[in-house]
């Protein structure tokens, strides 16, 4: 499931962009140190393979509907965590640009959700821990299913958390979680078996592909993970220190009443105040004498109908003007081109 720009706040989007950028830089550095030039063309075509494999649709048993694979865990098994993370990031970049999946601000969060968990958590701590150095078809199947399920569960949880922290959706944390986790459990099991099937298939005809490519050491993965833990820990504590009641609130929300008065949702207010501090437009909502119209808009729930009506009316006029502008511009550019 792709996170979308429209559900994100700039602060949450920005934090995950930073985390993703840091992980990419780390992975790139590791790969540079490995000096394995052969890996680069392999990474490129395996990224393309993910798209190609998505063209092969299949019937999901029992439902009759069509499914396709995500492929994150498969990449981790074939390439190891660092290369896999970078390939997943590229696949998602192409998807964000060409398939309009999620948007550009959400790209950071999406790379995190679908790239970080399979590469740096599920692969070293579940897949490698089970398969170790002597893979057998049974071990591979077990390891694949468990690691894909874990990666997708973490990813889905991440989506819920990001949505909640952004405060754009009214969906209560608990209910959203109840919606997302089971769906991704089903998807995870299916994709897990497929991943296992493909890995075992390749092993049966060309074992050296799998055996050779999974030599990334356990130790390295642990070091990578701890570095990432420090980074995320830092980010989280930054979050927590800027608004100590934020995390507390979301935990309370999990156990407490699902319905929440959005008006005095502290985390939303707090996040908005972070936005003001961190956004490119630092002063957008500073109270200024001329900005009275905006203040009225922000306090919408209490605004008098007169103001809101003018909002609707003005909005319609703005849209009309924009449309007229576009048509005029197109006519202008056409006539310019035809000459």
């Amino acid at each position: 499931m792709h996170m979308a720009d429209a559900l994100l706040s700039p602060a949450v989007g920005g934090v995950f962009w930073a985390a993703t950028a840091a992980t990419t830089a780390y992975a790139a550095k590791k790969l540079r140190q490995e000096e394995n030039e052969k890996l680069i063309p392999l990474m490129g075509v395996l990224g393309a393979f993910v798209f190609a494999a998505q063209m092969i649709n299949f019937t999901i048993p029992g439902t009759g509907s069509s499914g396709h694979i995500g492929g994150g865990m498969l990449l981790a098994i074939l390439l190891g965590p660092n290369a896999a993370f970078i390939v997943i990031a590229s696949v998602l970049t192409v998807q964000a640009l060409f398939f309009a999946d999620g948007g550009l601000l959400a790209l950071g969060a999406n790379i995190w959700n679908l790239g970080f968990y399979p590469s740096y958590i599920a692969y070293p701590f579940i897949y490698k821990a089970i398969v170790k150095d002597n893979p057998t078809p049974k071990k591979i199947t077990l390891a694949s299913v468990l690691s894909v399920v874990a990666a997708l569960q973490l990813g889905a949880f991440s989506v819920v958390l990001q949505t909640k922290l952004s405060g754009i959706s009214e969906l209560p944390f608990k209910n959203f979680l109840m919606l997302m986790q089971p769906i991704h459990l089903a998807i995870g099991i299916a994709e897990g078996f497929i991943t296992a099937g493909v890995v075992n298939y390749i092993r049966s005809i060309q074992p050296e592909i799998i055996e050779k490519k999974t030599t990334v050491s356990y130790k390295k993965a642990v070091i990578a993970l701890s570095i990432m833990a420090v980074i995320t820990g830092g980010l989280l504590s930054w979050f927590a220190s800027t608004h100590p009641d934020g995390l507390e609130w979301s935990i309370m929300n999990v156990y407490g009443e699902p319905e929440l008065e959005q008006k005095d949702n502290p985390i939303v207010n707090k996040l908005q105040s972070i936005q003001e501090k961190t956004a490119i437009l630092p002063d957008y909502s500073l109270p200024e004498p001329e900005a009275t119209t905006e203040e009225a808009a922000e306090g919408w729930p209490n605004a008098d109908p007169g103001t809101s009506l003018s909002g609707i009316l003005g909005g319609l006029i703005v849209l009309l003007v924009v449309a007229a502008f576009g048509m005029g511009l197109r006519r202008f550019s056409r006539s310019g081109n035809s000459q």
């Binding site: 720009d5 550009l104 729930p301 909005g315 924009v322 197109r330």
Partner: peptide
């Protein structure tokens, strides 16, 4: 553009509409 659009508070609608000028500009030109 994306960050500015997303930075609008949850219950803000009319202020967003002016932003259509950007995609319309690109589509037309």
């Amino acid at each position: 553009f994306v960050v500015t659009v997303v930075s609008f508070p949850q219950k803000e609608l009319s202020g967003l509409l002016s932003f259509f000028i950007y995609p319309v500009f690109i589509i037309a030109l």
